[in-house]
Design a binder for these strands. Structure first.
Length: 302
RNA sequence: GGUACCAUAGCUCAGUAGGUAGAGCAACGGACUGAAAAUCCGUGUGUCCCUGGUUCGAUUCCGGGUGGUACCA
């Protein structure tokens, strides 16, 4: 990544769930005189606060946050929308400060912001629904058949066990008449700003402990009531989320409450693991413990 | 205290007619350009409780010990 001291800096503070990103990012942002843009694909939804461990009103008061609770669970949103919004906000904030802090654990969204995501039209909901029905009716085999036919290039590289990936290819072809593989440039967008990427992490056992504690804390704060309130909307993508889906299964009598809470902790641990796997590919990133704020600031200013 | 049963992976357990062992879950590793807290792929990590004995060879059979469970006192 080319450095240029005249340019503004985007500070990415990421890391696995429950590592302590919120607290550290507030501390760092205050010391930099910066505001925070969230890159958390579930904290976008204003209806969800407890189950997504969104920053509290007190925390939101300490530093101005952007893209927290800016969507409804009924809204459609994606990484490209995020890229555009986040860049627009950052450009505005850089008029007041040299730094903008981005905090969150959604790797795809961070990638979109740092490296760009190829511009493509949104696929109409109708087409998305039709492709989903194709999968429900004909399974993976049905998806493979159609994708092989409409986009052999993508079919050759796609994970043919992953319905989401194949549905995406089919959707794009049906929506645009042009193969998904033609829309993908596989190139990185040069950004006119510096990017400092910080991954916060802890020893795995410690992270697991914090996840267990946070799960209990969420229940005390009213996680069950929150899940109950949105149970009628359980089919929405925004609610296909750890902490909600397990409680929905409990409410549907698939297992008891204790099992649901155990599954929440387990699935949160697994999510954290997937996040860590994602962040390992960030070659320019520096890894820190959340408490190492001085070292983090030093790295940002270096 | 007596009798019976049990002791194998982090957990629940299977198994080896004696040739050092395998399932589920957990865990670990990975992929991922518009659902991403989503979706998908891969990997057994083990003093087979301890200790004597029989045997070429014991996790497996026998004795003793320890721990657990149940029943009887």
């Amino acid at each position: 990544m080319r450095e240029n001291s005249d340019r503004k800096t985007l500070v990415i503070l990421t890391g696995p769930t429950a590592v302590g990103k919120t607290e550290t990012s507030i501390s760092i942002a205050r010391q930099l005189g910066a505001e925070i843009i969230s890159a958390d694909a579930r904290q976008f939804y204003r209806e969800l606060t407890i189950g997504t461990a969104a920053p509290t009103p007190e925390e939101l008061n300490l530093v101005k946050h952007h893209l927290v609770g800016h969507l409804s669970i009924h809204d459609y949103y994606n990484a490209s929308h995020f890229e555009q919004q986040a860049i627009e906000i950052a450009d505005r904030l850089w008029k007041k400060s040299d730094y903008v802090v981005v905090t969150g654990g959604s790797g795809l969204y961070i990638d979109a912001l740092c490296f760009g995501i190829d511009p493509m039209p949104d696929v109409p909901g109708q087409i998305r629904a039709e492709v989903k029905i194709l999968y429900q009716l004909k399974g993976l085999e049905g998806l493979r058949d159609e994708l092989k036919n409409c986009d052999p290039g993508y079919f050759a590289i796609v994970d043919q066990s992953n319905p989401n990936r194949m549905m995406r290819g089919i959707e794009m072809f049906r929506a645009t008449g042009k193969p998904f593989s033609m829309w993908r440039s596989n190139s990185t967008t040069e950004r006119p700003f510096n990017i400092k990427t910080i991954v916060l992490n802890r020893p795995r056992a410690e992270l697991a402990l914090r996840i267990g504690q946070r799960t209990s804390a969420m229940v005390q704060q009213g996680l069950i009531e929150e899940a109950l309130a949105y149970y009628p909307h359980r089919h929405l993508n925004a609610l296909n989320t750890v902490g909600f889906k397990e409680l929905f299964d409990w409410l549907a009598n698939r297992y008891d409450l204790a099992t649901a809470l155990e599954k929440i902790a387990t699935n949160t641990r697994r999510y954290a693991k997937r996040q860590i796997t994602w962040f390992k590919k960030y070659e320019d990133a520096k890894w820190f413990l959340p408490a190492e704020t001085n070292q983090i600031l030093q790295f940002i200013r270096s």
